[in-house]
Amino acid sequence: MATPNLTIVVPCYNEEEVLPETVFRLSAVLDALIADNLIAGTSTMLLVDDGSKDATWALIESFHAANSFVTGLKLAKNAGHQSALLAGLMKAKAYSDCVVSIDADLQDDTDAIREFVVKFHEGFDIVYGVRQDRSADTFFKRATAQGFYKLMTALGVKIHYNHADFRLMSKRTLDNLEKFQEVNLFLRGMVPLLGFPSTQVYYDRKERFAGESKYPLRKMLAFAFDGITSFSVTPIRFVTLMGFLLFILSVFAGIYAVVGKMVGANVTGWTSLIVSVWFIGGVQLLALGLIGEYIGKIYKEVKQRPLFVIEKDLTEQASNAAQTSLLQDSSPAVQTASGRRYGP
């Protein structure tokens, strides 16, 4: 296999505190992989600014000017983590043989990228980064995360346990991912649907290097709910089943009432009536809300609005370098990055 051109895609939202260290560590990873002839010397990292309100884009531009590894995309507005990640993947696939996606917070182990590339050389198109364990998480976060993965599996969604968006994908998998014209993105569920040869690399997740988490509880719950409703109709089937069971119960309740009337039983029934009315009303509202959620997703899909709008693009240099490398009909030379400048 020819030495592949690798791009590391990093979605960034208000990451000015951690970005210098992120660029430093990823540059060191690329430098070492190039020196070991595991990737081409034209390999880069692509920092995607997802409409940040701080100095994230200014830092990306400054690193791009000083560090030949760094390229960047600036989205016109905040499109969300999944859309920003997809924007980077679709841009990078045009000039890359394989792409690694990783968050900017440095919680995912950058040293695992080497093992990703080794697995790619072994013939795997998708390499999933999977956490060894969740012992460092709080009890609540661990319980909710594990519950989410188990629920998704129970609903019939093919998803890798303890895997987020830290993965390697080959060019052909990205070409096929582009055919998925979904507006409601849940890449953790979409990527396994591709079906190409895949494997897993286990790593230990670390504490965030700096800054604050961009996924508070509210966003985590919304993300989980999006994943469930985007990949499974089981919840809406559950509503149908619940309606059928309530209908059966109402038949028995009706028979009981008629029999009671015939035998002259004194039925007061006020408490049971009120309880049943509130219960049935709550179930109906829940069912309507769930149906509305699915209809809302259909509404978003049929409009076919773009998931992101690119305001600025710093990838032209990387694209030209990759094309020049392909035009050279010779084996790639081993390149080191001793002359490169990078760091915070």
Rank of each mutant, 00 (worst) to 15 (best):
L177K: 02
D313M: 02
F116K: 03
Q107C: 12
S96N: 03
F196S: 14
V334D: 05
L75D: 00
N14H: 11
K93M: 13
T336V: 15
Q200T: 13
E311N: 01
A337P: 02
L193R: 15
I8S: 08
E207R: 09
E316C: 04
P11E: 12
T22P: 04
V118D: 04
L217P: 00
R134W: 07
G189W: 03
H81C: 04
N320K: 14
T144Y: 15
A210R: 13
H163N: 06
P20T: 08
L245K: 05
A32S: 15
Q304P: 00
A287E: 07
R142L: 11
L6S: 13
L75F: 00
R142F: 08
L185Q: 05
A253C: 05
M262S: 15
M169E: 14
I228N: 09
F166G: 07
L174R: 11
L187S: 04
F308M: 00
T234A: 06
A224I: 03
L89Q: 03
D97Q: 07
K206D: 12
A94K: 15
A253R: 12
A322M: 11
P4K: 10
Q82L: 06
K141M: 09
S331K: 08
F223M: 14
D36R: 06
L246A: 14
F140H: 12
F116R: 02
V191F: 11
H81W: 06
V99T: 06
I102L: 06
G243H: 02
I255G: 02
N184T: 15
V283M: 10
G88H: 02
